[in-house]
């Protein structure tokens, strides 16, 4: 890589000198690189080819409206994620186990869904910020999936329930105290489009 870019420096219509790379145990045989005429130099590459400012995204990528999910919050709740017909359920730290309270809430959700035959729901798994990015994405997935499986057990049509993990990427309450964290460890329900 280094020798190749060096060979593209301007004015190098010469054979680049062998750079004998010394190593701790001895010297390797010299490597030769010849200049290729007509190629732009590495400095020009870096200064000129990389566009300044935003690197454009292709036209196939359009900003999606709203919060970047394919769902919208269930109407009727006050604070998003609280109240409403499909209220959030909550989890213990680093756990995807459903508490008795969460199960009771999900039983109400199943009843509500029986009365809303055309509603498809996206189950979002969220985590608090006390964990790593990647593990929390897997944990959020596990929370959403545990929630989905419980609803399936209550007779909800599998085709109506999809899961998505947000890990710790989109906390409900960024407060950072215990109360905020408890709110953030949740499964949230949004209407799928």
């Amino acid at each position: 890589m280094t020798l190749r870019s060096l060979s593209r420096l301007p004015g190098t219509s010469l054979v680049l000198a062998a750079l004998v790379l010394a190593t701790a145990c001895g010297k390797r045989p010299p490597a030769l690189a010849t200049a290729t005429p007509g190629e732009t130099d590495a400095a020009r590459d870096r200064a000129g080819r990389i566009p300044e400012g935003p690197l454009p995204e292709g036209p196939d990528l359009r900003p999606i409206e709203g919060e970047g999910t394919s769902g919208t919050d269930i109407p009727g709740g006050g604070y998003p994620g609280e109240g409403g017909p499909l209220a959030d359920i909550h989890f213990e730290y680093d756990s995807a186990a459903l508490s008795d309270l969460a199960r009771a809430v999900l039983e109400k959700h199943a009843l509500w869904l029986q009365g809303q035959r055309d509603a498809s729901v996206l189950i979002e798994g969220h985590c608090d910020e006390r964990g790593t990015v990647e593990y929390n994405l897997a944990l959020g997935e596990q929370r959403a999936r545990a929630t989905r499986e419980y609803l399936l057990g209550l007779g909800v049509d599998p085709a109506r329930l999809r899961v998505v993990s947000y890990g710790k990427e989109r906390p409900l309450d960024p407060g950072g105290d215990d109360a905020a964290r408890a709110k953030n460890r949740r499964a949230h329900f949004s209407m799928a489009r």
Partner: peptide, 22 residues
């Protein structure tokens, strides 16, 4: 010798430094 548009002048120093490191 390095020549190019002076869009990012820092890139000349970066190139020189990497060449010295060789």
């Amino acid at each position: 010798r390095y020549a190019g548009r002076a869009v990012n002048p820092r890139s000349f120093a970066h190139q020189a430094s990497d060449d010295i490191m060789t």
